[in-house]
Simulated assay, not measured.
Amino acid sequence: MSRIARSLADLKPLASELAAARLAAEAERERVAAALRLAEQERRVFELSVGPVTPLRRMDRVMHDLAQPAPEPRQREADERAVLLQALSDEIDIESLLETDETLSFRREGISLEVVRKLRRGHWALQAQLDLHGLRRDGAREALSLFIHDSARRGLRCVRVVHGKGHGSPGREPVLKGRVRRWLVQKNEVLAFVQARACDGGAGALIVLLSGSA
């Protein structure tokens, strides 16, 4: 075989490889083009489903940043309410803590008799009142505890607690009178209390002096 014939024979495999490469490249281009068409269809799926759409005309608008309401510490308030309620006992003996005068007044250790006298005379103006009429024991205990706690937190100094004279109770005995005294003695915010003057409720109410007022 001549040299030229042998050269042509050697080129045939190369030509076959080049043809195969061209076919593979063409197939790859077709695959890429098909993938791009599919991606475009997916991107425009909404438009292709509903038909041609017209963009809304842009309008100048002012967006206001609305202030979010402050979170309410409901769990903390519930916990505090539970602690306040549990802290007041009906069983505590307060006889030794009361002054054996005509109204059985109370003053915490370190509070002078003069403070009690001023409280009885109305030296401090009444700043708030709690009326316990119509409440049962547990309701009255919780209401009183929250009232004293809130009054002290607000910086109030002198408040009145109305427990009633017992005219509407069985036996005409004041149901809450003794309990209110026991509960008040257990409140650290209470410095002293006396029976109210006749003009302020008499035997049906107590005038209470809170921390910081002496």
Rank of each mutant, 00 (worst) to 15 (best):
R160P: 11
A203W: 01
R61Y: 13
R136I: 06
G212L: 03
K12G: 03
R107P: 02
A34S: 13
R108K: 15
A67R: 15
L85F: 15
A214G: 07
A87E: 08
P13F: 06
C158S: 14
E91F: 02
A25E: 14
K12W: 04
V115C: 11
R108Y: 03
G168W: 07
E80A: 11
L130D: 04
V194R: 00
L119N: 00
A214F: 00
R81L: 09
K118Y: 02
S169G: 01
L209C: 05
P69M: 09
Q195K: 09
L38F: 00
D101R: 10
G110W: 03
A214R: 08
R172M: 08
L130E: 04
N188G: 10
E114Q: 14
D200W: 02
R120M: 02
L36W: 10
R157D: 02
G166D: 07
R117W: 00
P71R: 15
R160A: 05
L23H: 09
C158M: 05
P170R: 13
D79C: 05
C199K: 15
A24Y: 04
A125N: 10
G212H: 05
R81S: 15
L97F: 06
L11Q: 09
V159Q: 05
F147Y: 08
H64D: 15
V190R: 01
L156M: 14
F46G: 00
A33V: 01
R81M: 12
L135T: 09
E109C: 04
P174W: 09
K177W: 08
R136D: 15
L14M: 10
V162Q: 08
S105L: 02
R117E: 15
I94S: 04
A128E: 07
V194F: 00
A128S: 12
R74D: 12
S96H: 12
L126F: 05
P13S: 10
D65S: 13
R76I: 03
W124E: 07
Q86W: 07
